[in-house]
Structures are given as C-alpha cells and as structure tokens.
Design a protein around this nucleic acid. Structure first.
Lengths: 113, 113
DNA sequence: CAGTATCCTCATCGATACTG
DNA sequence: CAGTATCGATGAGGATACTG
C-alpha cells in the first residue's frame, strides 16, 4: 500500500499511471529525454497542444518531481524545463513503449511512405 | 509516418499512446497478463470502474487487436477476454512501468504499513 | 518569451435500470 | 452472466485574448 498526497495506491503501476497517464504528460517527458527545453520549444514540439495545457502539464509534472524548472534572470525571460533525476528514470519505460509501438505498426502494416 | 484507421502518427510512441493512453486500458491489459478473465472478473478487479466503461474499453481494445473475446455457448453465458499475441507484447512495457512506480514510491517514501 | 485569464465544448466516466 | 440504454456530472483540454 502506498500513499501520494492523500491518495492511496495498491500497486506501483497505479502510481506510475497516476503520475503520467494523460493525453500529454508522457509526450512531454519523452521530448525532454533529449535534454532541457524552453517553454516555447515544448509548445512547438506538439503543434496541437495549447500554451495553456503545456503550462498546466508542466506544473503537474514539476509537482510530482518529474521535471525541474530553471529561470534565467534576463530579458526576454528564459525558462528551461528538464527531467529531474527521478524523471530520467522513465527512460526504460519510454523505450519499451517505443518498441511496442514499432512492433505494432509493423505487425499491422501501418507504415506510409 | 504511420497510419491507423485514418489517423496519422509520426512516432511509434504516439501509436502506443493512441492505443493505450486512457484512464483504464492499461489497467485492463495489465490485469490480463495473468491469464484470461471473464467480464465479471474484470469488473471485480477494479471496484471503481463501472460495467459500462469496462464494456467500452474491452471493445476498443478488441478493435485495436490487443485482446481476444471468446464466447462459450452455454447458459449462463460465459465470455472470456485474453491478451492477443500482439497484446502480450506489452509485457516489457508494463514491467518497466511497474519498476518505475516502485522506484518512485521508494524515492519519495510513500510506503504505508 | 513565458506565461494567465476567460469562456466553452466535448469526451469520459459514473449511476441506475433493464434485457437475452 | 454479460452486457445495453439512458441520463447526467465533471473536468480536461481547446480558442482566444491579454500581461509582465
């Protein structure tokens, strides 16, 4: 049995899904595996996500200690988001997800030119 | 570039998330790793999910070829859901998610008696 | 550049009841 | 047992505009 800010979980899987299971978070942490990104870069990485959603998701990921937020005191402002030590631990998981996707599209002949 | 019933994807990760990223699907396929389950068993595994949602999610998972549905001609009816060959390929991914959750709760001291 | 503030839509999910 | 039908709540996320 585990507890995370008031909520109870019976299985580590549940914890993982609690932290990452939504439409965007996994994409965001995935894109940060290459290295730190600025707010605008993250927005540009996914054209179909809005600034507002990016903002919310980054806050949530920061709250669950998956990413760090670094503000550079300059004008114009520069803020960088990067995976925390904990966040970097997603790598094997993300790799496995990538591999599965690769297998799936091959299996189902979903490739296009 | 990949295509799945009309939608376009640029990355295998995107495909994986398209198939599995919602509140329940990962839990369901996860619970099927032990072996086939009947409809009621799946409902009972997750007390906080409704029959309706289970029904919808099973249909979606079947449509994306992740699970198989076997009807036994008997009264009362018996229907079994099991992972397909494709579905079984989630195992490394799920293991990685489990491991991450485990790491996370240890790191953050979330264990309760 | 890096966000907030509003307003709004729409899918997801829950509650409950009913059926072959 | 294995669902479907109906209705309703809710909240994530989109569109757009604005700010330090």
């Amino acid at each position: 049995m585990y507890e995370l800010n008031g909520e109870e979980f019976f299985c580590p899987m549940q914890v993982t899904l609690h932290i990452l299971n939504d439409k965007w978070k996994l994409f965001i942490v995935y894109s940060l595996l290459d290295g730190a990104k600025r707010f605008k870069e993250i927005c540009d990485t996914f054209p179909s996500i809005t600034q507002k959603t990016v903002s919310i998701k980054l806050k949530e990921l920061e709250a669950s200690q998956m990413i760090t937020r670094t503000v550079y005191a300059q004008v114009p402002p520069k803020v960088e988001y990067a995976l925390s030590a904990t966040g970097k631990k997603i790598e094997p998981m993300v790799k496995a997800m990538y591999e599965f996707g690769l297998f799936y599209v091959k299996q189902h002949g979903c490739e296009k030119q």
